[in-house]
Amino acid sequence: MKFDLQKSFPYPVLRPYSDDYQDSEFQVDVAVGTQDGEIRVRTTHVTSSESILQLIEEKAAKYVTVISCRDTYLRIAEVSSSAVAEVSISAKKLRGEVAIDCFVVAVTDIPGYRPEDLNSEYGDGSFKIEAGSVLAQEETHVFYFDRELLKPVSSVFDIVVQEQMEPGRWSIDFNADRVRIGMSRETKATVDLARSSKEHRAVLINSLYFSAVMSCLEAMKSSPDDVRSYRWFEVFDHQIQDAGLDLEAQETYFLAQELLRKPMLLLMNYVFKD
């Protein structure tokens, strides 16, 4: 059931922008996070309607969170007496637009429903509510899910040949969906070969990729409007938020270490161990 302000119900429903109730409100805080290939949705329902809270207390109504993804035919309804609900979904089952709809729904018939602060236009009568009827509804929350966003930031780099570049030197171009690291054909061949060994990869991550990540972060900090529309920005931004980092407040070198998951450890484990 989509949130539709134009829709009229044969009984009062507590909804945003609706004047069925005088002062009561129903709001839901939705938090979406990712962990270990799972998408975690946490909804916190809050209502100031004493009547609705009473019905939940009496188990005549429940909080319902419906998570739906049209592209993958997924629809989950989490029914709970608790105001906080948490749902985990495999990232393999979501793609594109994901809608989160939150309700309070009657789970039994309620013969004489008469909330305390109804709009006076309803008069003095009461309502017969059937099980399944929506008593409160919040606006739909939508997020877009793309597993690309879960990939490490190093996945946004393409190493490309730049013929005029002198051996051993490299350049970086942010002006595309993927960040291009340009180097001479000879240097690229060496780097490509090095990537096949764990030890060499550890060195590359701590040199080439670490510097590239720092450059990207600098670009995001200094001229965000120039790079915001690119795909790599989304991946970085998502990873920064997901890791609880702060682009504005934290130093670039620290952010780069966090985003590359403390790359010095790779050197310690694979290169310096002997």
Partner: peptide
């Protein structure tokens, strides 16, 4: 029916 009721919360028999 789906316009006014959230059918997913109904018991299977109903």
């Amino acid at each position: 029916l789906g316009g006014v009721k959230l059918m997913e919360v109904m018991p299977d028999e109903e």
